[in-house]
Write a protein that binds this DNA or RNA. Sequence first.
DNA 1: TCTGGGGTCCTAGGACCC
DNA 2: TCTGGGGTCCTAGGACCC
Length: 358
Amino acid sequence: MAEWVLHVDMDQFIAAVEVLRRPELAGRPVIVGGRGDPTERAVVSTASYEARAFGIGSGMPLKIAARKAPEDAVFLPVDHEAYEEASAAVMAALRELPGVVLEVIGWDECFLGVETDDPEAVARGAQRAVLDATALHCSVGIGDNKVRAKIATEFGKPRGVFRLTADNWFAVMGDKPTRELWGVGPKVQKRLAAHGIATVRELADADESELIAEFGPRMGVWYHGLGSGEGPRGVDPTPWVARSHSRETTFQQNLTTVEDVDAAVRELAGQAFDDCAADGRPVMRVHLKVRYAPFETRTFGRKLPSPTEHRDDVQSAAAALAATLDPAREVRLLGVRAEMTPPAEADGVERTPVRGRI
DNA sequence: TCTGGGGTCCTAGGACCC
DNA sequence: TCTGGGGTCCTAGGACCC
């Protein structure tokens, strides 16, 4: 029997959860984001397939979505608790599958590690288990490592199963742009293109030393391997431990006075601190996320003199950081992050330089 | 036309040490 | 005139993911 990695990804998860508790919305374009008011500053969290047909997608400002949306479209507010509950039910159903190891990587997706000669059967079983437990549909990617399993899922959507291994990697992915690889964003795509690397096959065939010179020893090697679909195989069931917590908020009107900015920074820093305190870990660093007009997002960090468990220390550090912002530029506060002292290292599992949770 | 909120990890470059 | 070399730690910032 062989070791397989399955990637389970819920189909239009947030929209599907909303339709589930409002069955009358089935078949209509559903757009979830912000407080559900498309005249406010906020973006789309998830759009149903019906809404996507009108060019509406995740990350799009609600105001833009409202212009594209047909008359029967429905805008709904984000309801974190409902999605967390649905997510927990999905994961619980999958954990009960015989012989699987489960690693949660987001609200609506996870990896399953399983030893089997028929991974498609396991994938169909996973879809059935999730559907029976929650009435939600998902797609499953099957791979011989995490990278291939993750990418495979896109070819399975919606409600399907797709297998991507070393055997069909280049047939499926060879001619695709590098941007379609997991962990390659617009900036890296551009830097690769400057080296004459536009496709996945060209990345696989590239000179590794050239990639190391461009991206550094770790990322250079990682990107080169990514061209061939290489990646880690280990599925780690250890519960995820946060390294930091942040609080961001969208101000409907930009803050204009020093006093307003100071008060808002202290409020957000206090909330971020509370999240760290709930984890029982001291805070060692604070970050400010701001936007300079017209559209330049920047973060500024500052290390605290020593790790602290006092709310005031974190608030003061954030306020001091805010006081260093360039007063000559129009700046909009986005949020505050509190970084905790690091957790004990999880060992025995290969780390992946894909940003965000894995 | 208007751009969220939650995260993680890598690299560059200076400080410092031997 | 020539002015080590290598390692580690720390900070700031960038890039990406869901």
